[in-house]
Every structure is written in structure tokens, then in C-alpha cells.
Nucleic acid binder design. Structure first.
Lengths: 228, 228
DNA sequence: TAGATTGTTAATCGATTAACAATC
DNA sequence: TAGATTGTTAATCGATTAACAATC
């Protein structure tokens, strides 16, 4: 009964893709149904959270028996618009761009790198895997044909904002930014930043902490062999 | 007066690296002091949030005048343990591993890829940039010398958990996982997952939404040329 | 000192968890 | 029907924002 009009929290959207991945796995394994309690162990997300997340979008299960794996997978894919082909423009044909272009995981989710751009004259016209590296200047022109709505920014920090602006000008409405630089988001354009250093910083911060399960002055618990 | 003993929220840690990056930029530009209000525009983080974040770690500024850029930068780096050299083990010498190894941004934050491992016999013994690709079987042995505490997982999904286990067994306490697979975290080991598909899913979900700043039936605002 | 900006406390907001009535 | 599990509401928890006394 919830449906749309209430805005969906971003953490919910993030978890939706975790559910989707797990459901694809189950489907491949031939599992037909699951109960919400069964997603806890493999995904690390609580059953209550799972049901709450789904409740933003409608009803998906049968009280008493659970969810049909294929049906749920299909419906989550639809919610995330990953049930239809999505074209992606990749800007930056360096090492990271090359890795992203070659990433074998896209196709399963209907994501397709439609074109690769760079501003380096030494690279333009050469090939990156199966793509011809196109002049960044041709971005808008090329996307007039393609109509891609998603762009990946895999360029040095200095170039990130200008690339973002060009992508938006070319009609892109979602940006995935790998450059270590903040992107001023144009209104109505979604931005996701992936910051390698940020991820590392959270890890290094936690270094040297003692394992939280056993306090330094505590004796080992007796029931050590129990659970897991 | 807050200091430690209160647990620091992860969003705060994530923002800390944003502050650090911006402060490094200011430092390079020769800026000596900033006020909290000045970080809003470039970082997109509110001044109140900035001060609140810092308050978890002590006092950093001078009421009335603001913060010394160099001092604040140094202290944030220390908090994140990015003021000292941090060795990192990279597992997976594929395209993504190659890009991560070559990433020019690590050094500035004292992060160093110390060794590269793979399980592919065709790759072992060959070079990846300046590194020799080592047999994954040698992980523990090699890290006995190195003592690295951070590991990057850049392998296919099927191998992710086993690589994680090996890294932990070799003494690693922080994992940065790029494999599209959930890692069951060992107790006391921090895990950060970077999921390309998840990032994309959040973007594709938002496709087709109308720009939130202007409702469909509203006229353009009069003061259009103002601000920015 | 007067003006400005911090560090911190209190108020608000939002997300997660727990509990349970609805229902298969 | 009885048992089980959903979808949803209410309670809890945590993070963000606002406001202001402390202080340079």
C-alpha cells in the first residue's frame, strides 16, 4: 500500500541491488522460493530491513510461504530499471577506464558501455578493447544518436568537473564519478562518487583497534566452539 | 572535550577524507586559514556538520578566526592514520587490479601497494607495472616480512571469500572488496565494499525523474541570474 | 573591547528494529 | 483449520541541523 510518492531512502536502493544479486544467484542455483529470514546470513541484512525495503514498492511475498525468487528478482530489476538496456558513456581511456570497459559484470544487468571518450590526442582513434576511443569534443554529437543517460567519469581530478558538465550537456542524467574530486551536481542529475582514498581512509582509521568481541581484560568465553 | 571512547559514525569518517582532500588542495594553493562556512560550497558539506565531525576528535579551530589549513590537514591525516606509510596487498592482477596498482592517488596519502598476488599460473612470475605477480599461495609467507594490514580484493566473485580469508589469515585487518560478492567479515576485520553495479543501480533508478527544483506546473523563477 | 566563529548542546529528522495484526 | 510469514505500524536508535554560550 505504500507505493511511490514517498521518497525512497538511498540505503534502501543500495540494498535493493544486493537483493538482486543474491536472487540471481539463487535463480541460477534453481531455488524457487525464499523466506525473508533466509536472506540474513548470505547478505548480512536483517529480515525486517528486507521486508521494509520492499514495502516501499508494493507487496512481493505470500504470508506464510515467502517469495518466488524469479518473480522477486524480476520485480526488483524493474524497480531499478535494470530490466531494460541502459547505455553508458565512458569518459577516460586510462587504466581505470580500460578496467571499467572490460568489466564483465555489466551485461548481466543490462548495462552497456556504448562509447568511450578521451581528450588525449595520442589515444583518440585508437582502440580500447572493442571500442574506438572518440574525441571528447564529439560527446554531444555522438550521444545525439545514442541517447545514453548514464556517464562514467574516469579522468584525472582536474578534468572531472568539465567532463561532468559535458556529459550533462549531452543529455546524461546520472554520473558515476571515479575522479578524486567533488562534482558540483547539476540540478536533476544524480551523482555517485567512488573514492578509492575515502574507502582506504575508513579502513586505516580502524587499524589498531582491538577486536570488539573480546575486551582486553576478559577471559575467552567458554562456549567458544558454538555458533558459526 | 569529546575525544575517543564514543564511537565515531562512519559517515563522519567518510567526510573526514573529503576534508583532507580539500585541505591538501588549499595547502597547495597557499591558503593559510579557513572558516567552517568556507567548506560548504566546495565540499557540499554543511559548516555545522564539519564542526560536529571534528568535535569527535578534539578542538581544531580558533573561535573568531577559523582553522589553520596545514595544522588541520595534518591532524585529520593523523586521525585517519594517513600520516604514516600504509602497506597494501593487492590480490588480483586483472584489468581492475592493474588500474588500482597504477592509481597515482595512493602515494599522496601514504598508501603503497606492497605486493600483487594472483592465482593464475599464466600470470605468476610476470610483471604488473613494477611489481612481480606473486602466487596467492605465498600470501601469508610474503606478508610475514611486509606486515601489511590492508588488502584489496580485485578478483572474480567466486574467489572473493577465499581471498578474504587468506588475507585475514596473513594478518590483514582491513579489506577493500571490489568483487561483486558479499564478504563474510571476520570479527575485528573492517570491510568496505565497492560495488560498480550497486552504484549504477542507484543512478538508473533515478532516471526519468523530473528535476526536483522546478515543478512541472511552475513558471521559471524571476531571479534566475542570481547566485552561483 | 566588539565582532566573529568555534565547540557543544538541544531539537529535528530519518532510518532501523521490533512487534504484531493480517493473511496465505 | 493451525502454523508460518508477510506487510506495516510503532518504538528505538542514530545522524544531521540549528542555535547559542564560550572564547579568541
Amino acid at each position: 500500500m505504500a507505493r511511490s510518492s514517498v521518497v525512497v531512502p538511498t540505503p534502501t536502493l543500495e540494498r535493493l541491488s544486493t537483493y538482486l544479486r543474491y536472487l540471481l544467484e539463487l535463480e541460477r542455483a534453481g531455488v524457487e522460493t525464499i523466506r525473508s529470514a533466509e536472506i540474513e546470513e548470505p547478505t548480512g541484512i536483517s529480515a525486517a530491513q528486507f521486508r521494509k525495503d520492499l514495502s516501499y514498492f508494493g507487496e512481493f511475498g505470500k504470508p506464510g510461504s515467502g517469495y518466488y525468487v524469479s518473480e522477486l528478482r524480476a520485480r526488483i530489476a524493474t524497480i531499478l530499471k535494470l530490466d531494460r538496456d541502459q547505455l553508458v558513456l565512458l569518459v577516460g581511456a586510462g587504466n581505470l577506464g580500460a578496467a571499467l570497459a572490460a568489466f564483465p559484470g555489466w551485461a548481466q544487468y543490462h548495462l552497456h558501455i556504448a562509447a568511450v571518450f578521451d581528450n588525449n590526442i595520442a589515444k583518440i582513434g585508437r582502440r580500447l578493447w572493442d571500442w574506438e576511443i572518440l574525441d571528447i569534443e564529439r560527446l554531444a554529437e555522438v550521444n545525439e544518436k545514442l541517447g545514453a543517460e548514464i556517464g562514467i567519469i574516469a579522468v584525472p581530478a582536474e578534468a572531472a568537473q568539465s567532463v561532468a558538465d559535458r556529459l550533462v550537456a549531452a543529455g546524461v542524467r546520472g554520473l558515476l564519478n571515479f575522479a578524486p574530486a567533488g562534482i558540483r551536481p547539476a540540478p536533476g542529475v544524480a551523482v555517485r562518487n567512488v573514492s578509492l582514498v575515502q574507502e582506504m581512509a575508513v579502513l586505516t582509521y580502524h587499524l589498531g583497534e582491538r577486536s570488539c568481541n573480546r575486551l582486553p581484560d576478559e577471559e575467552p568465553a567458554e562456549d567458544e566452539t558454538e555458533a558459526e
